[in-house]
Structure formats: structure tokens, C-alpha cells
């Protein structure tokens, strides 16, 4: 959250100046997730070798399932909004983005780079938001369970 909120504020206010940062942040996120899951797997393996098995019971499964359902729903909604916007954006923008050849047929689409970046960032933000919601919900549910 500390990393991504300032990033997305920057990206949506100045899409072009933040262009190069997209790759750093996207790669950074892939690295963070990979390292997190790698450490988690190694610790599980080491514990199993020592005969310690982490019990995952039905409450854990229910909490994870609920978090996956809600975050998956959010991701699906965001992607659906993206698809709908894409579907209607071309006709609405009209001549600004669609250029026709001399014979009147559609020749190519001249889409402004800032709008492309906004579209890409929207998808990236959807993924980040879904991840944050997933882990946040798991944490929140355990906290509410442990509260008296």
C-alpha cells in the first residue's frame, strides 16, 4: 500500500513522466510475490521434515475462500469495466482515434499514448487492488475472530 498508492497517484496525474516506473513496479511486484511464496514453501518444507504439520482446518479454508471470492469478484468487475470502456471508447472518441483511409475503410487506430497508459494502469491497479483485498480480508477476518 505504501508503495502503490503514491505510484498510482503519480501515474494518474502525470501518466507520461511515470511511464518508466511501470516496469519497475510491475517487476517489483512479481519479485515480492515470488520471494514471499518461495519463503513460505521453504518454511513449510522444513517444518514437514521436522515433523511439524501446520493444521489448515475448515475455518482457515472458509476464510481463504471468502477472501478469494471477494477479491476475485473485485478483479472481475474491474476487468469488466475495462472491457466495457474499451468497447464504447472507440465510437465515443470518434474521429480523434479512428482514422480512415481515402476509400473510407478503417485503416488504423490512432490511440493517444496517455489513454493507453491509463488503460494498462487500470488493469495493473485491478490486480494490485485484488491482491491487497485478498490478504487484507484474511487478516481482518482473523483479527475479528480473535477479538473478544
Amino acid at each position: 500500500m505504501v508503495l502503490y498508492i503514491p505510484y498510482f497517484i503519480d501515474v494518474y496525474t502525470e501518466p507520461m513522466t511515470a511511464l518508466y516506473r511501470f516496469w519497475y513496479v510491475a517487476i517489483g511486484m512479481a519479485v515480492i510475490l515470488s520471494v514471499f511464496h518461495a519463503i513460505d514453501s521453504i518454511l513449510h518444507l522444513l517444518n514437514r521434515r521436522r515433523g511439524v504439520y501446520a493444521v489448515v482446518d475448515e475455518l482457515d479454508q472458509r476464510i481463504q475462500h471468502k477472501a478469494a471470492l471477494v477479491s476475485g469478484g473485485l478483479l472481475a468487475c474491474m476487468v469488466m469495466i475495462w472491457v466495457i470502456v474499451m468497447m464504447y471508447a472507440l465510437p465515443m472518441l470518434g474521429d480523434e482515434v479512428i482514422e480512415t483511409s481515402s476509400d473510407g475503410s478503417l485503416s488504423y487506430i490512432a490511440w493517444p499514448i496517455t489513454q493507453i497508459m491509463h488503460a494498462v494502469q487500470w488493469l495493473f491497479a485491478s490486480f494490485v487492488g485484488a491482491q491487497v483485498l485478498y490478504y487484507g480480508m484474511i487478516l481482518g477476518q482473523y483479527r475479528s475472530m480473535s477479538r473478544e
Binding site: D57, L59, M145
Partner: peptide, 22 residues
């Protein structure tokens, strides 16, 4: 019972209804 202590706490506090199996 093959569950976590967290689940026992949640059950005792009435915050979680177990499956029939549990």
C-alpha cells in the same frame, strides 16, 4: 479434534458455526 486453537476460540465465542463433520 484436528483443528486449530483459533477455531476453538471462534466456536466458544459463537463467531463460527462448524460443519456437521466437525
Amino acid at each position: 479434534a484436528g483443528i486449530t486453537r483459533q477455531t476453538v476460540i471462534a466456536l466458544e465465542q459463537g463467531k463460527y458455526y462448524p460443519s456437521l463433520e466437525l
